[in-house]
Design a protein around this nucleic acid. Structure first.
Length: 644
RNA sequence: GCCACCUUAGCUCAGUGGUAGAGCAGCUGAUUUGUAAUCAGCCGGUCGGCGGUUCAAAUCCGUCAGGUGGCUCCA
C-alpha cells in the first residue's frame, strides 16, 4: 500500500503496517516522540494496523492534535489511579481540554474529593506510569459493552452507550483500567512523565443542572518535567498579574458587598486610567465621524418588549420596577435607546450614515457564582455604537469599524485575530431575508479581504439578527481574550420601523451595525491591568512621575521641580517625608510609577535632576528640560520607550 | 443558582479544644538621610453573622452571608 506523508512524499508499506512502523521509517527520534497518527484525517493509535493507501500525519506533543491525544490518555491514567485508590468509583467523561485534561468521577458512598486528595492520586499516577502499560484498543460489540458497565454498576457509561447504539464501540485498556473510549491513545503510560493535578470542581453530569453533580478533577501532564515547570511558572506569572490583586495593591478599584457583588467601584487612580482610556477612544471615534450621546440608566419596559430582549433575557435582567403605573427596567443594553434617538426625526439618505456612540452603562443580573473581579460583573460600561446606514454603505462602514478596532489594539500592543460568524442552513435560527444575509456576509468578507485581515469563518455562529465579526486579542503572556464584536442587524430596523427617505423619494429601512471595540470597559481594564502587569505605560499611568528630595534641605527645590512637571501637564507625586531615599524609591517602585525624580544637594547646586526609571533603574542626571521633552514624547497613546 | 474550598487587626498571614499573635500600614517621637523598606513607643480584633456540642470553641457540628476555583448561563 502507498502511504503519503504531509510533505507529499509517498512510501510503500506492506498492508497492515502501523503508525509506529511509518514513524520508525522516518526517524528514530520521531518514533520516540510520536503520540498518534492521523490516517485520512482519522485518529489512529500508533499500534493500529493500516490496511489501505492513505494520507497520514504523525503527531507529537508539538501538535495540538498530539497534545489532545496525550492529555486524553493522561485523563485515563488519572481515572485508573482514582479507581485504584477508591474502588467502586463511577466514571463520567474524561476529555482533554485546551490546557490539560479532566475526568468527571462519582466516588463510592458520599466521598467527595478535595484538593488534599490530589497528591495521593498524582503519586499513584506516577507509579502507574512507571509500569509503562500499553493502551490497548479493543473492538467490542455494543451488547457486551453494555453488559460490562452494568456489571460494574457505572450507570454513566451505560447512559453514554445508549446514545452510541448501532455504532462501532471501542474500549481501551491500560493496566487494570478498562474504559469506553473512542481513542486514540499514546502507546503507553510511560510516556506521561510529569503530572500535576490542579483542582477539583463540581460539574453537572452532561452539563445539565437538573442532573447529578459529579466531581471533576483537573490536571495537566507533559512528556518532560521541564515543560511542567514552565507551565507552573506561567501560572504563577498569571497569578502575579491577577487584576484583583493588583487592583487592590495599586488602589485602582474595589468591590464591596455593601454596594453589591459585581458592582465595581473605581478609586481615584483607577478612574484616572479609565478616564484617559475613554478620552483616547472618544477622540478617535469623533475623528472618524461618530457623534457621542448619553442615554439614561433605566428605560420603559415597553421599549425592551419591542426590541425583543424582554422577556427573552428576563432571567438575566434586574426585575422591572414600577413607577406611576409604568414599568421600567435597568438598562440591559443601549441599542433601543439609540434607536429612539434615530427615530426622533425623519432622515434623508443624505444624512446617512449616522454613527451614534456612547459609553453606555448597562446592568445585567449575572448569577452570583459567575461574578469575578472586573471580568464578570453586574454593572458595566460598553464602548457601544450603532451605525445607521444604507445597504450600499454597509461594506465601507464595516471597513471603518474594523479599521478603528485594529487601530485601538495596536496602541496596546495586542495582536488581533478575527472570526467571521455566518449563518448556516437552518433558517429557523435567524431573522431577516436570506438575500440580505447573503449580501451582508459578502460585504463582511470583502471588507475583511480588502483590509488584508486574517480570519476564520464559522458557519452557524451568527447571531439571531445578523452575521458578525468577533475579535480575539492576545495579551503580553500569550493568553487569548475575546473582546469586540461587530454585528450587522436587519431585525431591529423592522421592529422599530426605522426609516429613511431615499433618492427615489420613497422610504427604506436602514441597516444597523452594532459595534463595541472593547465590549465592556471594566473587563478591558482588567485585561489591561494583567497585560501590563500593573506597569502602565507612561500615558496611562495614574501617577507618572514621583519627585523626592534626598534630605529636608532640598524640599523646596523638589517642590519647585514637581510644580514645573505638573505645569507641563503631567501627573506628579511629591514625597517630602523625612524618610531615607531608599524607602521613597521602594514605594515609588511598588506603586509602579514610571519615573522617579531624585534631587539632592548636587542636583540642587547644578540645577539638574537625577532620574530613575521604573523597572530599569538609575538612568543618570538630566536637565529638567530634557525630561519634560521625554515626558511629552511618552504622553501620547501608544508611545513606547525605545531609547534609554 | 449548583459543587468544593476559604473567611483571624486597614493589608499579608501564623495560631488543631485551655488567657488572640507577627510583619506591614496608621498615630507619636527621634532621625535629615544618595537609588527597593531608619529606630522606638503607642493604637488597633465580638477570630464573617447566627445557633449548637463542651467545664471550656478562632479551633468541633449546623446554618446564613461574602470570596475563590469550577459547572450551568452570557443579547
Amino acid at each position: 500500500m502507498i502511504i503519503t506523508l504531509p510533505d507529499g512524499t509517498a512510501k510503500e508499506f506492506p498492508r497492515g503496517a502501523t503508525g509506529m512502523d511509518i514513524a520508525m521509517s522516518i526517524s528514530p527520534g520521531l518514533a520516540r516522540n510520536a503520540l498518534g497518527i492521523f490516517v485520512n484525517d482519522e485518529k489512529y493509535d500508533l499500534s493500529r494496523k493500516i490496511n489501505e493507501d492513505a494520507n497520514v500525519r504523525i503527531v507529537t506533543f508539538n501538535d495540538d492534535d498530539g497534545k489532545e491525544i496525550y492529555w486524553h490518555s493522561s485523563a485515563d491514567l488519572m481515572a485508573e489511579a482514582i479507581g485504584a485508590i477508591y474502588p467502586g468509583t463511577k466514571f463520567g467523561i474524561g476529555p482533554s481540554i485546551e490546557q490539560g485534561f479532566y475526568y468527571d468521577v462519582d466516588l463510592p458512598g458520599d466521598k467527595r474529593l478535595t484538593v488534599e486528595d490530589l497528591p495521593a492520586i498524582e503519586k499513584k499516577m506516577k507509579e502507574l506510569s512507571k509500569l509503562k502499560s500499553e493502551y490497548k484498543r479493543i473492538e467490542i460489540s455494543w451488547e457486551e459493552a453494555i453488559k460490562h458497565f452494568k456489571e460494574v454498576g457505572d450507570e454513566y457509561k451505560v447512559e453514554l452507550l445508549e446514545d452510541l447504539k448501532g455504532q462501532e464501540i471501542t474500549f481501551y485498556k491500560q493496566g487494570g483500567f478498562l474504559d469506553l473510549c473512542r481513542g486514540a491513545h499514546i502507546p503507553n503510560t510511560g510516556m506521561i512523565k510529569a503530572v500535576k493535578l490542579l483542582s477539583v470542581a463540581g460539574a453537572y453530569w452532561r452539563g445539565d443542572s437538573d442532573r447529578d453533580m459529579m466531581t471533576r478533577v483537573y490536571g495537566i501532564s507533559f512528556p518532560k518535567q521541564k515543560m511542567l515547570d514552565e507551565f507552573i511558572t506561567m501560572r504563577q506569572e498569571a497569578e502575579r498579574r491577577d487584576h484583583r490583586k493588583l487592583g487592590k495593591e495599586l488602589e485602582l478599584f474595589m468591590i464591596t458587598p455593601m454596594i453589591g457583588g459585581g458592582l465595581p467601584v473605581w478609586l481615584p487612580k483607577g478612574t484616572t486610567i479609565r478616564r484617559i482610556l475613554e478620552e483616547f477612544m472618544r477622540k478617535e471615534q469623533i475623528k472618524r465621524g461618530y457623534v457621542e450621546v448619553i442615554t439614561p440608566h433605566v428605560g420603559n419596559l415597553e421599549m425592551y418588549k419591542i426590541s425583543g430582549h424582554y422577556p427573552y433575557y428576563a432571567d438575566s435582567q434586574y426585575p422591572p420596577m414600577e413607577m406611576d403605573s409604568e414599568q421600567y427596567l435597568l438598562k440591559p443594553m443601549n441599542c433601543p435607546h439609540h434607536h429612539q434617538i434615530y427615530m426622533m426625526k425623519p432622515h434623508s439618505y443624505r444624512e446617512l450614515p449616522i454613527r451614534l456612540f456612547e459609553y453606555g452603562t448597562v446592568y445585567r443580573y449575572e448569577q452570583s457564582g459567575e461574578l469575578n473581579g472586573l471580568t464578570r460583573v453586574r454593572g458595566f460600561t460598553q464602548d457601544d455604537a450603532h451605525i445607521y446606514c444604507t445597504r450600499d454603505q454597509l461594506k465601507d462602514e464595516i471597513k471603518g469599524v474594523v479599521d478603528i478596532i485594529r487601530y485601538f489594539f495596536d496602541i496596546f500592543d495586542m495582536p488581533l485575530t478575527t472570526r467571521l460568524s455566518f449563518r448556516d442552513d437552518d433558517s429557523s435560527k435567524y431573522g431577516g431575508e436570506i438575500e440580505l444575509w447573503d449580501r451582508a456576509q459578502k460585504d463582511i468578507r470583502e471588507a475583511a479581504d480588502e483590509l488584508g485581515l486574517e480570519y476564520t469563518v464559522e458557519m452557524g455562529e451568527a447571531s439571531f439578527y445578523g452575521p458578525k465579526i468577533d475579535f480575539v486579542i492576545k495579551d503580553a503572556i500569550g493568553r487569548k481574550w475575546q473582546l469586540g464584536t461587530v454585528q450587522v442587524d436587519y431585525v431591529m430596523p423592522e421592529r422599530f420601523e426605522l426609516e429613511y427617505v431615499g433618492s427615489d423619494n420613497s422610504t427604506h429601512r436602514p441597516v444597523i451595525i452594532h459595534r463595541a471595540p472593547v465590549g465592556s470597559i471594566e473587563r478591558f481594564m482588567s485585561i489591561l491591568i494583567e497585560h501590563y502587569a500593573g506597569n502602565f505605560p507612561f500615558w496611562l499611568a495614574p501617577e507618572q512621575v514621583s519627585v523626592m528630595p534626598i534630605g529636608g534641605n532640598q524640599n523646596e527645590y523638589a517642590t519647585e521641580i514637581a510644580a514645573k512637571i505638573e505645569a507641563g501637564g503631567f501627573r506628579v507625586k511629591l514625597d517630602t517625608r523625612s524618610e531615607k531615599i531608599g524607602r521613597k524609591i521602594a514605594e515609588s517602585e511598588q506603586q509602579k510609577i514610571p519615573f522617579a525624580i531624585i534631587v539632592g544637594q548636587k542636583e540642587q547646586d547644578s540645577g539638574m535632576v537625577s532620574v530613575r526609571e521604573h523597572t530599569v533603574g538609575d538612568i543618570g542626571t538630566k536637565s529638567l528640560e530634557e525630561m519634560l521633552a521625554l515626558f511629552n514624547k511618552l504622553n501620547v497613546p501608544g508611545a513606547k520607550r525605545t531609547d534609554n
